[in-house]
Design a protein around this nucleic acid. Structure first.
Lengths: 109, 109
DNA sequence: TTTGTTGTTCGCAAAACTACGAATAAATAA
DNA sequence: TTATTTATTCGTAGTTTTGCGAACAACAAA
């Protein structure tokens, strides 16, 4: 039987990448990286989508571990999950730091 | 009317991230980064999915611009699209190079 | 208690994704 | 010409994603 499974690293990287796979979620992360005041309303205000949809995207980012939320009644405050952010950062840096293979005359030339 | 659109950078980053959003596609990229001989069959051989599905994932990576294919009858050779790889690399490095905001006592503590 | 503010959840619909086997296409080898 | 090899495309099925309005829940303010 061959080696035909995905590695945990590949799975994890794919999970983070998937979370970044929508412009609204990239925009949310961009926003949270720069802001300290990060209430739901502030986030919703800068996005071209409804409350319900924003809430869903936030849930996905939370499920992926990239952000966390906390109630501060009657508002909800979101922010980057630093520990996981670091994990993701390292994975992406490692992946994109790799050199694409040198061109050889027999490789797609 | 407020500023409520996604930036081209956010859209592009999301597009690349989405392409990386499945472990099979991460595995394919991992493979292509290391190999020069990169025929369809070689790729299929290391993945736990059918030919048809591999072909679909390759198409998505091609559509995202991260790889390219070329016929070398009766085989097909795939490899990294260097120009776009560089674009993606810069985008991801810029994104993940950002410092998450310093903790303050009023931000999710 | 009643009212208002803030977000989440529900219910729904359309579209996209993932996966496979079978059929097909394209070129070589016999 | 007739296989054979190699990979894509087709057809199908089930799942997930994206999006919204409406209903709901939780708490603060009046």
């Amino acid at each position: 039987m061959e080696e035909r499974e995905y590695t945990p690293k590949q799975e994890q990287l794919a999970r983070f990448a998937k979370a970044m796979g929508h412009p609204a979620r990239v925009a949310i992360l961009d926003f949270l990286i720069r802001q300290n005041s990060c209430f739901f309303g502030d986030i919703h205000e800068v996005l071209p989508i409804s409350k319900a949809t924003v809430s869903q995207h936030l849930k996905e980012l939370k499920d992926a571990g990239l952000i966390q939320g906390e109630i501060e009644a009657p508002k909800v405050k979101y922010c980057i999950n630093r520990a996981n952010w670091e994990v993701a950062s390292l994975l992406f840096k490692e992946f994109w730091g790799q050199e694409a293979p040198r061109e050889k005359k027999d490789c797609c030339e």
